[in-house]
Design a protein around this nucleic acid. Structure first.
Lengths: 349, 349
DNA sequence: CTGAAAGCGCTTACAG
DNA sequence: CTGAAAGCGCTTACAG
């Protein structure tokens, strides 16, 4: 099982290495190489089962066709799906995909960024709600490489595809308010100044304000545990039931899995969704449609995000730096199912 | 942003390239290189932010630290989770992971295997219920590379980590039979001679036989649609309700998502689980615990499988070929929750 | 202990 | 149209 090289092909076909190389790179016509020569060479390559050595090619070229997809955030299902979409598209374009999942682990990140310089990858797509930490280590790296940021907060001087968290919350709240609900809780995650949370609050409070509903701190149900989203939702559901004086009209959940956890807690206590309490999720995972009560939720447009990220990436790779840095903001959209009741919707969202 | 090379380091530190290389490879002591020299070199490397070029190293070595994880089967959640576990472990061991998902697409597979020879990857872990198609194209490749097969049928001469589909069905059926159910349907997937189905049938029929229950063809509910598992389950559920004379005692589902789809169809028709019909799933996905009725299911032991696969892989990589080919058969285990009722279990499973 | 040199398999000027 | 040669950045004998 010896490896067949260009040289072997040259010896076998009787042409020079550079000729063989040109033909195999598809530049035969460019160099005006005789059709018969090209045919000979291609047939020889085929017959000898020649495979180009990508390492040698990359070494020579000083770059590779490797693209890294980094996830430096919580590894949620929606994020995984989104990254899969990106990976598939890039794969179809002939790139090799290196996947890195690591989540808030600074040491890991440092090591990783070393690796990326060692490869060297030709580009980087980073799916990272909190890019700051990663960018700190990637400074040198991003200077000379391609980087597209996905679903981060605003960052200067880097291409970004963002998901509008503010209009996300706004649309969720607006939907509930339109249906007549006023006493609304928002299980908004882990208490922090983290930008997605800040943005979500703004959207939520804007909607409440428009309806003259007081937007106090007591509207938020925080949680701090490290469990998976289902269990977090379940705990949040019980918290709502047992630590509040009365049941709210409606609950907005951070995401679908949390909503499903809440649903379970409610049903265990005989609380009906949507008759007793309305519930909205976010992300539109497959689970939301098959929840006990079909969940009204928000479409995160992961296909659009993936498409945009790849589009920008390719453009930069071609050296086209027009409108750099590009900032694309994706608007999530409402998907109405049954968890908010069958009231007639008055007005749009 | 010029790339710092070994040569730069040699010039800067005043030692020869080979000396610098040895020190940076951690072989300074092996070559009896003075401690002060080593210190100098390391500091220079640090200061100049030297990064080894993996492409050059791989080219020289004739192999890389890349490992490919292939998925040539249906891309189910359990498979994804399993592959993630493997990727994480290998990553921690310093490997670069290349992920390939492609599903029954022969053309894609061919192209892929070319790529793998181009890299060249040092090993291959293939998660592929049906390995035959892939192996056909990989013949040349596997001869000189490392290959561990995951969750395939028996294949001669290759290391394998298998999941026992026969005892899977056997345990599911036994559990139901123990609880007193006799009229059991099995939504077993797409009608075919595909080995996992054949194995599942054997286990199912063995259990029925032990209880003197006729194991006819009418026990199987097949489906042929291409939808996702939830929707397939939903359709299967309706099929059971509307196309059979009467409701069965119990249903065994191909997997958890299908079970949840069935559950939804049943509940829409006012059929109670487990009061009217018992239901078992398989895979023990997070969803199974948060289904409308907490689902009794089978643990697929993905952590054990991942661990074994990596263990064997590392062994081969070290050149240790003892007990080759290794065949590890993992036994799934029952997880009892609420979807089969609270009857007292008589005897073990 | 240290250095000079070959070579991994490509691609790219350059010469003819 | 085709060929000889340099060089990408490493590691590995080999010589001293």
């Amino acid at each position: 099982m010896t490896k067949v090289t260009l040289k072997d092909l040259a010896v076998e076909s009787g042409f020079a290495v550079s000729t063989v190389s040109a033909v195999l790179r598809g530049q035969g016509d460019l160099y005006h190489i005789a059709a018969s020569t090209q045919k000979d060479i291609k047939e020889t390559a085929q017959r000898m089962e020649y495979r180009k050595n990508l390492m040698a090619k990359s070494l020579r070229a000083g770059q590779s066709n490797f693209v890294a997809i980094l996830d430096t955030s919580y590894n949620t299902p929606i994020r995984q799906l989104r990254q899969r979409l990106i990976a598939q598209r890039l794969k179809n374009l002939g790139f090799q995909i290196l996947v890195y999942d690591f989540h808030w682990m600074e040491e890991e990140q440092k090591k990783l960024l070393y690796e990326l310089e060692e490869i060297p990858v030709s580009g980087l797509i980073m799916d990272a709600t909190d890019a700051a930490a990663a960018l700190e280590y990637a400074q040198r790296f991003i200077k000379r490489q391609l980087l597209v940021l996905l679903d981060t907060g605003y960052i200067r001087g880097i291409d970004q595809v963002l998901l509008n968290r503010r209009s996300l919350s706004y649309a969720m709240a607006k939907h509930l308010l339109n249906l007549g609900y006023r006493d609304i809780y928002y299980t908004i995650g882990i208490h922090s100044a983290y930008w997605p949370i800040v943005e979500r609050r703004k959207g939520f409070e804007k909607a409440l304000k428009e309806y003259g509903v007081p937007a106090g701190e007591d509207r938020y149900i925080w949680d701090d545990e490290k469990a998976d989203a289902y269990h977090r939702g379940y705990t949040l559901g019980k918290k709502i039931i047992f630590s509040k004086k009365s049941l709210p009209d409606a609950v907005m959940a951070l995401n679908d899995h949390i909503a499903i956890g809440i649903m379970k807690a409610f049903h265990e206590q005989g609380i009906s969704i949507p008759d007793d309490v309305a519930l909205v999720g976010a992300e539109d995972l497959p689970e939301s449609e098959f929840a006990q009560v079909r969940l009204t939720t928000m479409d995160f447009k992961i296909d659009v995000m993936a498409g945009k990220a790849v589009e920008i990436f390719l453009k930069r790779l071609k050296g086209d730096m027009r409108d750099f840095p590009r900032r694309v903001v994706i608007e999530p959209s409402l998907i109405v199912r049954e968890s908010c009741g069958k009231h007639k919707i008055q007005g749009g969202v």
